[in-house]
Design a protein around this nucleic acid. Structure first.
Lengths: 235, 235
DNA sequence: CGCAAACTTGATGTTGCTCAAGCTAGGTGG
DNA sequence: CCACCTAGCTTGAGCAACATCAAGTTTGCG
């Protein structure tokens, strides 16, 4: 019997599976065949750093955070995973970070053994995975630049733009499901600095706010400039 | 005619090619067959961020730095590449960072078109590349933790341990070929802070120094503790 | 020998952190 | 339905770590 918050069921082929993006129909069908659906509640861990890797996951709905901890509890969030993206990077058989649900999350789970077999068996799948890895690595590098060299304002501006990306284009509202603590641990700041910086951006008319988890982009150009780190404006 | 500092020559199969590590003899031979040797001088660029990707490289000797710049010149070094490692991560056909030689560097160059074909043609090659990518991504995540959450002392200690790794085991001397500016841009610090931190570590007896580019590890345990970020000692 | 680049050291400055209240909103029970 | 409670957020005052600015010192090379 599973935990109440976790349910599993074999999935039938599901049309827009990101895992199979750009792949042939037959290949996509084979990949979908090894996937298992499940749902987890906010705050639940998918797996922890150092656990033996047993599955690869694809987020179908909701949002997951990935993080690492230092021995004394300092935390760095490596990324927020939104629908259509994969989780489960493995390094010598173990997960390299902890994955935890921020909202309620629906997942596709791929048992690692079967998943690995697909790499040999499904033509084009290895290349697809290499592309996915390249995207992740590129994002990691952008984040390194942010963490090492951007100011607090630049970090928060970059974060807002990242969150805006992939949300409904027609509207300037950005929905921010994670807490200030999560944002701070993602940007290498404290929760107070995140809060103050948002207040400053609002005072400058760059953003507006409808409650803590909904932010309106009022001056997109200005936000872009700040995020890019042009260093023209100090705010 | 090539630049004086750059020379190319078709390579014969070369025994310990890292690209082929763990692969069958025949596969390794095929991979080696598409490689071209070349040498570049310190300070020379292999390619720049945003350039159309044309090659993948493997460092044979020497050291290369990879970096990104902000519009106003702030720089973040993504990594130092030592022999046996690959360079040339591609994201939508363009390089995502600039690669520049620190020392004189010998390389194996693999033209991208031929390299890509090998993925389909050589069994096991795709998996090998996925492993390489996993290692890189894991290293990038470690660096994100360092940049976002470690103190100056912890950063410098981590850096020294990274440099010590892969150097002759029998000796405690760590050879540091890059400048303080490079180290600072790698750790998200200033050159002055790097210098002061090294001085502090020396005063504490954790390290000793033979000139600016050679450092002796005198208390390995202490250095490990500091790098791990146990936060027990403030120094 | 002399120059330039790289490094170290010192004095001062500033960004973002720490500590400490308040505030707000959503959920619960009376 | 409303008061209360709590988790999360905001705001303020003071501080510390690291940055900046400014000399000196060392090193390697022509």
């Amino acid at each position: 019997m599973q935990l109440q918050t976790v349910s599993s069921a074999p999935s039938v082929a599901f049309p827009p599976m990101a895992m199979c993006q750009g792949m042939e129909r037959q290949a996509a069908t084979r990949i979908a065949a090894v996937s298992i659906r499940q749902t987890i509640a906010p705050g639940q861990e998918l797996f922890a750093e150092g656990d033996a890797a047993e599955n690869v996951y694809e987020v179908v709905s909701g949002m997951v955070k990935l993080y690492k901890l230092l021995p004394d509890g300092r935390r760095q969030i490596m990324g927020f995973i939104s629908p259509g993206h994969l989780i489960g990077l493995v390094h010598r058989g173990a997960y390299v970070y902890t994955a935890e649900a921020i909202t309620e999350v629906t997942l596709c789970r791929y048992p690692l053994a079967r998943f690995t077999r697909l790499i040999d068996e499904v033509p084009g799948f290895a290349k697809r995975l290499l592309d996915v890895h390249s995207d992740e690595l590129s994002a990691a590098h952008d984040q390194m630049l942010l963490l090492g060299r951007k100011t607090a304002v630049e970090k928060v501006a970059s974060f807002l733009l990242m969150m805006a990306e992939g949300q409904h284009e027609d509207c300037d509202d950005v929905y921010v499901p994670m807490t200030r603590t999560d944002i701070a641990d993602y940007l290498g700041l404290t929760i107070e600095t995140v809060s103050r910086t948002l207040t400053k951006l609002k005072a400058e008319g760059v953003i507006g706010r409808r409650g803590a988890d909904c932010i309106t982009v009022q001056d997109r150009d200005r936000l872009d400039t700040l995020a890019a780190g042009e260093a023209l404006e100090t705010l």
